[in-house]
Design a protein around this nucleic acid. Structure first.
Lengths: 223, 223
DNA sequence: ACATATTATTAGACATCGTTTAAAATTATA
DNA sequence: TATAATTTTAAACGATGTCTAATAATATGT
């Protein structure tokens, strides 16, 4: 996990090239569009061979992914702090969603759709590749764990599964919004989704929010 | 919508070619794997040009999709009948899930993963293209409408959103299972997911299910 | 400082997907 | 049978992503 950012020249150079690729890549993506930018063009401009470029970024989308990871760092840090101050799971999820919508998707950029699709594609491909992770699993994972600990979230489902659901729900809403903002207004739909996730689609007793820590028929608890 | 299956020679021929493509395509996919089968090879065997093949199926995955659609027809018909006899939304969703698991995913075939990923990818691309639809929206849509009408499902959310939610949950479970059957056993996870859909992830008042007949907190009851 | 081992880069060829074009073949219509 | 509409076709194309074997750069031990 890169304990020391640059212990030797080799690492330092590699980091340099990475950054250069991302910078130039994103520049082209924004200027000419993702599809109209070729890997050759990027390699050309960075002044490396195509083979080297593919050595760093095995698919074109992963360049956006890297850019996203970098940009999300600050967001992630902030939200993890906030989350712990909030009283319950509902407000934590809600906060994460609205903050993400506000800061990450300020502008309805084309590039987001490419990246979110990529993220979605890779959600179910087991791979610890750092490049494929969204940065959101950590947040969601913390929320679920906090919730289960506080008795706020059911304990008969694994953290992993609940996290995946949150991810997939979040992604779906964002992608729907990017495809059709009128039909799926971002904030409103995210809000509904929070409620759906917490209280479910059934209409049985949704009057009084979380209620208490009671919990009851704990069944599976897989994992 | 093809009111008459084959009113003229042209239509008949086209249907023939479609079928031939699907048949031969699936044969190759199963024999050599999806990736190792090229569109050229399929075209060759069907005895049409590559351009024609692409005219019928604009992406390789859509061949599987067509195959899936055909296979799901009977399932769809049966399940739509059954659903109306069941007493509530929970049992309807549960039935759909378990029946799907039992009949559609009897074998853990590689091909499913390709198709389900394709389906998931296209969930968020607005397009009425018949080839991109799963065949499940109709089922889920009916379940939701029945539920909302009976007062069993919350009415403050659109049918569309709830259907998407169901689809996405279902897909996630199946894909997880295909990636890691041990970590995400199909039937058990689907069962849990039904509960998540109906009651949500929160732990507020989930004590008394519909109660009703047998079935206690046993989640399994596969098929 | 040097020799050797490890790792990164490279050019170029390659297979495949999916698109495009303009011409030819087929079928429908009158 | 003439003409119009549709389908099929070969062939070339651009792009993604892979692969290989040679070369270059860096690290490591002496």
């Amino acid at each position: 996990m890169t304990p020391i950012p640059s212990e030797n020249r080799r690492e330092r150079k590699k980091q340099d090239t990475r950054q250069k690729i991302v910078k130039i890549g994103m520049y082209f993506f924004r200027k000419q569009g993702f599809d109209s930018t070729t890997m050759e063009q990027i390699a050309e401009e960075v002044d490396i061979s195509k083979a080297t470029l593919y050595n760093y970024f095995p698919v074109k989308e992963s360049i956006i992914s890297e850019y996203w990871q970098n940009n999300i760092k600050e967001f992630k840090f902030q939200i993890l702090e906030m989350i712990q101050l909030l009283p319950d799971t509902r407000s934590r999820v809600q906060k994460t969603f609205t903050k993400a919508a506000a800061e990450l998707f300020k502008s309805k950029e084309d590039i987001y759709k490419i990246y979110l699709s990529y993220w979605l594609r890779n959600l179910n491909n087991p791979s610890d590749n750092e490049r494929l992770r969204s940065g959101f699993e950590d947040i969601f994972s913390m929320i679920i764990k906090l919730g289960q600990h506080a008795g706020d979230v059911r304990k008969d489902m694994s953290v992993e599964l609940l996290v995946k659901y949150l991810e997939v729900l979040f992604l779906t809403v964002c992608l729907n919004w990017l495809s059709d903002p009128k039909l799926f207004p971002l904030e409103a739909t995210l809000s509904q989704t929070v409620s759906l996730f917490i209280e479910g689609a059934g209409s049985g007793s949704r009057k009084s929010k979380p209620k208490a820590e009671g919990d009851d028929s704990v069944q599976g608890k897989l994992l």
